[in-house]
Design a binder for these strands. Structure first.
Lengths: 221, 221
DNA sequence: CGCATTTATTGAACGCGTTCGATAAATGGT
DNA sequence: ACCATTTATCGAACGCGTTCAATAAATGCG
């Protein structure tokens, strides 16, 4: 699909049309017939470029991940400490996704679906998942954490970040103030945690958790 | 729907048929036409008793919750400490849900869908959610925890339990051994945590987390 | 250029969950 | 026992995502 130059253009046009309609009317309310129509082609043709409707969302996720990496770069350049970096990264991401909130609230459910093209646990999305965790690995690389705490933190933060996203897509407070407050609260708890992780108090516990999650295949590698 | 005596019987027959088919062929592979047919009625009649296909899953969740409460009773009667209670409860639940794993793996995605009848965050399921958290409240009522730690723990455990369920439905290891191992690992980390929570070391951090989550409306009440 | 192969495009058709208006059966009050 | 109202049952129809066989257009190679 989309192997020729014209093909790539058509695919691009289709994707742009789809995204615009998703943003305007939501994912579920937008029909494949609407999308094909809006892009000036027949229904069947759309399936030449995307194997399914949700596959378009996967493409959107890919795009969002590019933006995430840039936001991480900016946060790393601007801040030395993990809490500050996290705060900057998450607030920036949320602000950027503000126009997409409605479409995301429709679409978030596919995340938990292993068979969906937009599912985080879909084998086809292994690379996307790895890149997403890698973003948090880089944010964590401040020298504050060591050993198993450092191994755990990226995956932990990624999971929490997914939970925050779930909260975000359903947050109807003005400008999503509640989600921003949730982030602030969570980030503030991180400082004391890092301080504790430096003492030997938490070490045995963190070692054990690291081993358990690692055995379960939930940590990278 | 199902207001007369015969009506209740028909509804029961429909539900039993649906559940049997879900367990045998999975949720997605089972058609409303299959269900109606198997229960000896026309397609349209099924919708007189359940407003949608997933609504049948909600009824199943309700049933599972009854069983959860009984399992909690048993765990509380048999064990004094939170880790032991949790371990007993979770292992028992997993063993009981073993035959439903396939259907649950189809169905888990609706959990994150706020508009789905089977969604945890659906307003219509507020009571189900409250009952689910209440199970963990009772498990936590051992005297080991106090203050904000005691307020946090039930919701924390419920969330983790949901994550474990997500792991479970996709666990293809024999007899879901990996999920059971994950539970054991998680429960073992709980003892050290409780010990720490008794010292004043964690108190400020837990207080802060409690306030943040409470402000976000994520804690009970 | 000519031609085989690949890529692009089409619209009808399918299966699904769901909706709907019509009709039959059961119920309850007098 | 009668009739008004509620409950139950039916099957056709709708809208959706998706599939498919057919055809057109573009491409690349000798």
């Amino acid at each position: 699909m989309a192997r020729s130059k014209k093909g790539r253009q058509t695919r691009e046009r289709l994707f742009t049309t789809a995204l615009a309609l998703f943003r305007e009317h939501g994912f579920e309310a937008t029909t494949m017939r609407d999308i094909a129509n809006g892009a000036g082609m027949a229904l069947g043709s759309a399936y030449h470029y995307f194997p399914s409707k949700v596959a378009m969302v996967t493409a959107y996720y890919d795009q969002t991940l590019d933006a995430d990496e840039e936001r991480a770069d900016a946060a790393i350049a601007a801040h030395e400490s993990l809490p500050e970096r996290l705060s900057a990264f998450l607030h920036a991401k949320l602000r950027a996704l503000e126009p997409d909130q409605r479409m995301l609230s429709d679409v978030f459910k596919y995340t938990a679906d292993k068979t969906s093209a937009a599912g985080v646990f879909n084998e086809d999305n292994r690379e996307i998942r790895a890149r997403a965790v890698a973003v948090f690995e880089r944010l964590c690389d401040t020298g504050e954490l060591k050993g198993h705490a450092l191994e755990l933190m990226p995956t932990l933060l990624w999971s929490t970040h997914m939970a925050v996203m779930l909260y975000f897509v359903h947050d109807d407070s003005p400008r999503q103030d509640r989600t921003h407050a949730l982030i602030d609260g969570g980030v503030e708890a991180l400082g004391p945690f890092i301080a504790l992780a430096k003492t030997p108090l938490l070490t045995p516990m963190l070692d054990h958790i690291q081993k358990t999650l690692s055995d379960a295949g939930l940590l990278k590698s």
